[in-house]
Design a protein around this nucleic acid. Structure first.
Lengths: 148, 148
DNA sequence: GTCAAATATATTGCGCACAATTTAGTTGCT
DNA sequence: AGCAACTAAATTGTGCGCAATATATTTGAC
């Protein structure tokens, strides 16, 4: 390992964080065209995936699964409701809580989403093993940074 | 490799893209506190790094190095100019082009930025080798997605 | 039962990120 | 020289992402 001077130390192109940041942006950008026909953004697509696997969950739980706070989820979920994909209803047992329920239209979107997933998988230049490696590293980083 | 049903296929927690997305957000969030004392956001910090390594470059070149378009860079660079860290001057040879020049204050920030970098490096739970692996996978993904 | 602490969601404000479009300047063809 | 094609920035509009704050409801200690 050679001694770095200041220029090297702050060189953008040598920083893993910048690569992570740019790759995430490129990925979302790449999803955009694929999601256009579903009329969904990438974060909206993520929220729908949560709903497809756990219909009836609360806004709080949605935020936990997406790793987002209410300042992000509330408007996002309102947009999905405006599109007619879900309903937001107050929980009878605890009026503070807001439950999310798929509409028929929201459920129907699932089949078309599977096609998007397949199309995106083809776009990726990484092998299954590399994708798993990337996921594992990202998860490790996120978990550590969140509860540091 | 076992056959997946639809639920598995669209399970959020099994998708590398979601891990990438969440890790990038967590990383930017983590940088936020460290960058607070420099009064910079993470994208602004990136732009400053470019300037520290290539003072006098054009807005176009800045966008290329950051992998961002003018809709992102123009307001970002105006904010940095408003903070007194750089100047935006039209190129004499080609009036379409806008050149970016560090101010003394912008240059002075570099030393303090080195401290931020060191502090962030300590936060990362990954080894040098893992960080290099992550970088390599992210770069491969981004490059492929950009010119696909 | 009262009231302070905790909890769930919503709101506000700012700064990206980017597609689409506009404006201004340059180049190249004839 | 005239003009179309190209190029560099800037602008516009939408949707995050999140810190900070506000609002409403519930829980728990007494």
């Amino acid at each position: 390992m050679s001694q770095m001077n200041n220029d090297d130390a702050l060189c953008l192109e040598k920083q893993s964080c910048f690569s992570l940041y740019s790759a995430a942006n490129a990925m979302v950008r790449s999803y955009r065209t694929a999601l256009l026909e579903l009329d969904l953004t990438y974060p909206q697509y993520l929220a729908m995936m949560v709903l497809w696997s756990e219909d009836g969950l609360s806004v709080k739980r949605m935020g936990e699964r997406l790793h987002m706070d209410s300042g992000t989820t509330t408007p996002l979920l309102k947009r999905l409701e405006a599109k007619g994909l879900l309903q937001r209803v107050r929980c009878k047992q605890d009026e503070r809580s807001c439950l999310l329920q798929l509409t028929d239209e929201g459920l129907a979107l699932k089949e078309r989403a599977l096609e998007v997933k397949k199309a995106m998988a083809c776009k990726a230049p990484l092998t299954e093993e590399e994708l798993e490696q990337l996921k594992s590293l990202c998860d490790k980083l996120r978990v550590h940074l969140c509860d540091q």
